[in-house]
């Protein structure tokens, strides 16, 4: 589904990603872990099409198409979804209205008719239950005045509405209490099937108790320096990142 080869990206002439190689197949869950500043969020942003980053080398293919050639909205319509680490507050735009416009533009791209008001509402109600979000929250301005947990649940709600092929969760667990974490993880697990894939970017192992990864990768200094199974995450939890840093720094 996703093939990343030797991906380099920089922001304001500072190179952050220094050759990422990663392949994600349908049905898989990949966790990307790493210390602060290792490039985790940059990778998520580059995949989602944030224009602040310049891709200087390498390639990323999504479903056989050149992902890097596509504008952010094309990627979303093709089925890439980024759950933001810090969802943006937008006064004056309600989640409902926003989702209706987004969903219909995605549907149009797929050659489907727009959803009428009734079907949209039905779909929304169904997905709301999944993340235990209240309708009144969704009629309010997007993320404005939402608590951290509400913002993250809203991200997963949007993900549920758009049914992406590839979901990238950028530190969706940060700042969540255990109840909110369970709700978010449950949402993600329910949406998981053999045709879609998930990349979980996280700093903490805790989330991986609930969203169990098939692969764990450690990102450090802009490269994936170690890959393994979920046991790697447990090892990191126990031993921290220092041993990996030492290993890598010794070889440079």
């Amino acid at each position: 589904m996703l093939k990343i080869k030797d991906l380099h990206a920089s922001i304001e002439d500072k190179e952050i990603l220094k050759g990422i190689n990663l392949e994600v197949k349908a049905g898989e869950v990949h966790a990307i872990m790493g210390p602060n500043g290792s490039g985790k969020s940059t990778l998520a942003s580059v995949l989602a099409g944030r224009e602040d980053y310049e891709v200087t080398a390498g390639s990323a293919e999504f479903g056989g198409k050149d992902l890097l050639e596509m504008a952010a909205e094309e990627r979303a319509r093709e089925g890439v979804f980024l759950a933001f680490q810090y969802p943006i507050e937008i006064p004056g735009v309600s989640t409902t209205n926003f989702m209706k416009t987004a969903l219909n533009q995605v549907r149009e791209h797929k050659g489907l008719d727009p959803l009428d008001a009734v079907s949209f509402l039905k779909l929304m109600k169904e997905k709301m239950q999944l993340v235990e979000i209240d309708q009144s929250l969704l009629s309010r301005s997007l993320n404005e005045g939402f608590s951290g947990g509400e913002k993250k649940r809203n991200e997963i709600f949007q993900m549920a509405m758009l049914e992406p092929k590839l979901s990238i969760l950028d530190e969706t667990d940060s700042g969540l209490d255990i109840d909110a974490l369970k709700i978010v993880a449950n949402g993600v697990n329910t949406l998981k099937n053999k045709d879609n894939a998930t990349i979980v970017v996280t700093h903490y192992q805790r989330l991986l108790d609930y969203i169990v990864p098939d692969f764990v990768h450690v990102l450090y200094k802009g490269r994936i320096v170690k890959s393994g199974t979920k046991d790697l995450a447990l090892e990191l939890e126990e031993k921290g990142y220092d041993w990996i840093k030492e290993e890598v720094d010794a070889t440079i």
């Binding site: 989602a48 224009e51 504008a71 990627r75 979303a76």
Partner: peptide, 13 residues
């Protein structure tokens, strides 16, 4: 940032 957020959900620029 807001523009990117909306586009990342499929809205045209």
């Amino acid at each position: 940032d807001a523009l990117f957020y909306l586009r990342a959900r499929g809205l045209s620029k």
